[in-house]
Write a protein that binds this DNA or RNA. Structure first.
Lengths: 324, 324
DNA sequence: CGGGGTGATAAGCGATCGCTTATGAGCTGT
DNA sequence: ACAGCTCATAAGCGATCGCTTATCACCCCG
């Protein structure tokens, strides 16, 4: 399986014709046909067959197109990426759990970028369990989220980033709020309610997931939303209760109408950590961020309520998966 | 640039040692060293150099690691993907603009999946301008969002999916609401206010972006949030005004405290479309979704208020970019 | 039935790949 | 300074790649 072969295949799929693909590539028709034959033999699938009105992809070929065109594109990307690395600003690749990426990370990185220096920061989302691998594989410079430790975290160094208190909130109209103005609730008693959570709660290592397990909430009473904001919005609409870092729902300019429930054992005192390779193996940019994190500017930025960013600075989130 | 060479490079970066990489691959050390040399020569960058305590990546090498490990992983992915294509459920790859992906698309696809059949649907996010290319390159089966037409949409067919009315909302406490209980506002008069928008507003072809341009809102008064829910949450907190499809903010179970502004020229009557390859080139799964879209079940699902999904069905969003 | 298009196959050829063993070159540390 | 580790380089060899031209097999359409 060669990049040349994949490129030929992608072009045939795109154009629906071997001859046309050969013309586009500037080679003879058998060259393309041969590349196709080699792929077919190695993968054990026809991939693409003659059909009325052009070549048509088999189910296997259909899956391959996407994969193959990504590979081809990454190949040309590689060359230009390296050319552009000369004299380009240093790059800081930060990964965070979805909750951190939606709450404190943008403000932290915005403040870090605004502090001068010539570092271009990017923020991606990954699950807690993937972070150690991403750092060790040099696919990320800093990971923000749970503390990474144990077997898989060899060579990594975690430092505390942000202290927060995890509470459970609900709309003022929620029965639990009206019944219990001041009385204490037990965690167990919350097992029967609907919990509104964000994507991070699907990560078995996340504090929210562990809280759900501890309470014993059945799957049927867990409702996963694509973002923290969406989960809280549903909570305001009275659809259920939601775990949340306290400062995010209370300092929020007064617009939020969510109130913390007085639950025994809550709030949980928790920490987010920043992790990177230890010692000299740490990227210079990662070191700069680590030093910045200790400054009052950083702490102040992370405690500020959530704000949007100007269009020129907005980058869509990138979700990173580990490829093995 | 060969996959073998890239794999060797990735392993060296991961392990920080040529010898260790060679041991892992089960080949001699010069084999790895040679692969590295070939890459270095072709790309014109040292990529990775000796440093105290292991090999350390150059800036260029740092960029390559991510790209290369993706390519390698996609290579092994390719083989297994094709093996699994035998007898596996048919695949339906849907791309949508971020707004659609956050609002009607999840409900539509959930209803489509629940309708029986043996189709596995996935939902990704792309900008409106990329959709035509994604469809033509067979990287997606159906695109949900603006109507695709013109030069770049050759061979594509758009059908109306969902009619909605775009309004501008604000918190009840917002000055515009208190001053204008019933009086009409002009669009121009909104240019000086802060607009809270989601990611799609950065796409020049999106209706929201065109509305902003038409009103003449300066960049400094646009605040981009990572999700619709986050933008609306900020609007509730009184941070500004937000464009929104009417049914999403009004039917929302009463929890939302956002009210539409009585603006001259609003609401805008708009449509989201579903686009796919035309005629026989359309995937069977895409055809099934097209037929389903016309059923009352589909319409009903899309009009329902936003809800979360059970953890077992939650899939993190994937953001797709076009590689050329 | 016989063009004119399609894609698949065969034979051949130079360049490169991927690997080996042997050796050089550079740094570290007791 | 020397051994001991590291990575880089050289020479060589078989397999494969990537391409060519020539030819065959198929199918639609007059």
């Amino acid at each position: 399986m060669t990049l040349t072969q994949l490129e030929a295949f992608v072009l045939v799929a795109r154009l629906g014709s071997v001859t046309a693909a050969a013309r586009t590539l500037g080679v003879s028709e058998p060259a393309v046909s041969g590349a196709l034959a080699a792929l077919r033999q190695q993968l054990g699938d026809a991939l693409i067959e003659r059909g009325s009105g052009g070549m048509v992809l088999t189910p296997g070929g259909q899956r391959l197109v996407g994969i193959a065109s990504q590979m081809v594109a990454l190949g040309v990307e590689a060359e230009s990426a390296i050319r552009q690395a000369q004299g380009a600003p240093e790059r800081l690749r930060v990964v965070a759990t979805s909750t951190v990426a939606e709450s404190v990370a943008p403000a932290l990185l915005a403040a870090f970028a605004g502090r001068g220096g010539n570092i271009e920061a990017s923020l991606s989302v990954a699950s807690g369990v993937e972070m150690a691998a991403l750092l060790q594989d040099r696919l990320a410079d800093v990971a923000l989220g749970p503390r990474l430790s144990g077997e898989t975290a060899a060579g990594l160094e975690s430092v505390p980033l942000f202290r927060y208190r995890l509470v459970v909130v609900a709309a003022p109209s929620h029965p639990l709020v009206r019944l219990n103005g001041s009385a204490g609730l037990t965690l167990r008693s919350l097992a029967g309610h609907t919990w509104l959570v964000d994507a991070e709660a699907t990560d078995p290592a996340s504090p929210v997931r562990r809280l759900l397990d501890h309470v014993g909430v059945p799957e049927s009473h867990i409702s996963v939303f694509p973002s923290l904001a969406a989960a809280w919005s549903a909570a305001e609409a009275g659809q259920g209760i939601a775990p949340a870092p306290a400062h995010l729902v209370t300092l929020d300019g007064g617009g939020h109408s969510l109130v913390p429930l007085p639950v025994e054992g809550l709030p949980l005192e928790l920490l987010w950590y920043a992790t990177s390779l230890s010692g000299e193996r740490r990227t210079p940019a990662a070191g700069a961020l680590h030093r910045f994190m200790a400054t009052p500017d950083a702490t102040h930025a992370m405690h500020a309520p959530l704000r949007g960013v100007p269009p020129s600075r907005f980058r869509p989130p990138v979700y990173v998966t580990i490829w093995r």
